[in-house]
Amino acid sequence: MTAKDHLLIETPSDGVRLLRLNRPDRRNALATPLLSRLARALEEAALDETIRVVVLTGDGTVFAAGADIRELAASGPDDAPHGPRQEAWDRIRDCPKPLIAAVEGWCLGAGCELLMCCDLSVAGEGARFGQPESSLGIMPGAGGTATLPRLVGRQLAMRMVLTGEMIDTARAVEAGLVGEAVPAGQALDRALDLARTIAGRAPVALRMAKASVRAAFDLPHGDHLLFERRRFLSLLGTGDKQEGVAAFLEKRKPVWQGR
């Protein structure tokens, strides 16, 4: 199988793109070719005006169990700090459209870091989340020490990273790593429900709102308020704003043009 075969691309409903990790023999291990293929698929969705939201999932037993150990074995300290793998991670994080994760089963190492790239998430009961890299003599390298503490707090992040202990879906929701828990096997259905709801909203507003919320990681509060206000004002000049207001006053469903 090629990297193309390792990512299945579907359009299950209007405005919704579904990406399925598909390396069942390797528990969806996130080798660099797969990460690069995923980055390209997200860029293609970003350029497609008919797509408004993307759902990312694995299968019923595993989201992604980590990096590809065989690839890791061939890596060394002289690898470029910003080589193809890091470039792929950056491109995934830069996806401008809402990205929803649907998780069943293992979500470990790089899989957990991929989850943290998503904007919303749904996990089935029985899913497991962790950063077990220290058992291999390494540490997380794509958000497991940088993003995880910002989501779950210092103590839980330290525990997950230093001990390698996994947490279950209920704990992940309580800590803020996952947005919603559902019965096992129902994560994808619920994520697609969320995606259809989001796909019915104004596309330009969705992109602006996502960018503004994510800026909370990077900007001081005062700077963020200005960042937010500028994007709010820019939306006042869009056709979608005019349509949204008109539809509200006329008591009808808006027809978004994405402009």
Rank of each mutant, 00 (worst) to 15 (best):
L30I: 12
L30W: 07
T32Q: 12
P33I: 12
P33R: 01
L35W: 10
S36W: 06
R37F: 02
L38H: 07
R40Y: 10
R40N: 15
A41S: 09
L42G: 04
L42C: 14
E43L: 06
A45V: 06
A46Q: 04
A46G: 13
D48A: 13
T50V: 11
T50G: 04
R52H: 14
V53C: 01
L56Q: 01
L56C: 01
T57E: 10
T57P: 01
G58W: 09
D59I: 00
F63I: 04
F63L: 10
A64H: 04
A65W: 08
A65I: 09
A67K: 02
A67V: 08
I69E: 14
I69W: 10
A73P: 00
A74Y: 03
G76W: 11
P77Q: 09
P77C: 09
P77R: 13
D79E: 15
D79A: 14
P81A: 10
P81H: 06
P81Y: 04
H82Q: 11
H82L: 08
G83F: 11
Q86W: 03
E87N: 10
E87V: 14
W89Q: 07
R93G: 02
K97R: 15
K97A: 10
L99N: 07
L99A: 07
A102H: 03
V103P: 00
E104V: 03
E104Q: 11
G105Y: 01
L108F: 12
G109Q: 04
G109N: 15
A110C: 09
C112M: 14
L114D: 08
M116K: 08
M116C: 04
C118I: 08
V122G: 01
V122C: 08
V122Y: 00
A123K: 02
A123M: 09
E125P: 00
E125R: 14
G126N: 10
G126D: 09
A127N: 00
F129W: 05
G130K: 07
G130M: 00
Q131E: 11
Q131S: 05
